[in-house]
C-alpha cells in the first residue's frame, strides 16, 4: 500500500468510518461513491460501532508479502451489527478457538510495517468481545 493510499484510507482503517446512505438508510463499509444498495450517490460519513459476529473464517498459513511475520493468523468475514460484512484479521485469539457466530469487536492494531525504514500501517482487526468476557467472569 502506497503512503498516499494509506493516508487516504486512514479513517476507515483506524476507526471503521463508513457511510450511511441518505436515501435507503443502509450502512456502507468501506465508503464508496455510490450506494451498493440503491445506487444513489454522495453518502454521509458514519462511524460503525465495531461490534459484530464471525460469519465465516479461515487460517492464513501462506501469507501475502508483508504479512510473513504474523502467520499463521485467522481471517474472518465479520457481519457488523449495522449490516455490512467486512473481511479482517482476528487477533488475541488462536486460530483453533475461532467459532462461527462468535461475538467480536473492532480494535485498531498494527497491520504491517513497510520494511525497517517505511511507515507502519495500522488498521481494524477484530477480537472476542472483551466486555462479555468481563461480565461472564
Amino acid at each position: 500500500m502506497s503512503v498516499a493510499r494509506t493516508w487516504r484510507t486512514r479513517k476507515q482503517r483506524y476507526a471503521l468510518v463508513g457511510e450511511r446512505c441518505d436515501y435507503c438508510q443502509n450502512a456502507i463499509f468501506p465508503p464508496r461513491d455510490v450506494c451498493p444498495h440503491c445506487a444513489e450517490p454522495a453518502q454521509k460519513e458514519f462511524a460503525l460501532s465495531g461490534r459484530g459476529t464471525v460469519y465465516s473464517y479461515t487460517t492464513v498459513f501462506d501469507p501475502p508479502t508483508g504479512f510473513d511475520a504474523f502467520a499463521p493468523y485467522p481471517v474472518a468475514l465479520v457481519k457488523l451489527d449495522e449490516g455490512p460484512m467486512v473481511t479482517a484479521q482476528l487477533t488475541d485469539i488462536m486460530p483453533d478457538q475461532v467459532k462461527i457466530g462468535m461475538p467480536v469487536e473492532m480494535v485498531t492494531r498494527k497491520l504491517n510495517e513497510q520494511g525497517d525504514e517505511g511507515i507502519i500501517v495500522y488498521s481494524y482487526k477484530f477480537r472476542p468481545q472483551l466486555q462479555r468476557q468481563a461480565l461472564a467472569a
Binding site: 511475520a69 504474523f70 487477533t91 480494535v107 485498531t108 492494531r109 498494527k110 497491520l111 495500522y122
Partner: peptide, 13 residues
Amino acid sequence: AGLDEDTASMSIE
C-alpha cells in the same frame, strides 16, 4: 505486547 501491538495501538484502546 502481541505481534500487532505497539505503543500507538495500545494508547488508542
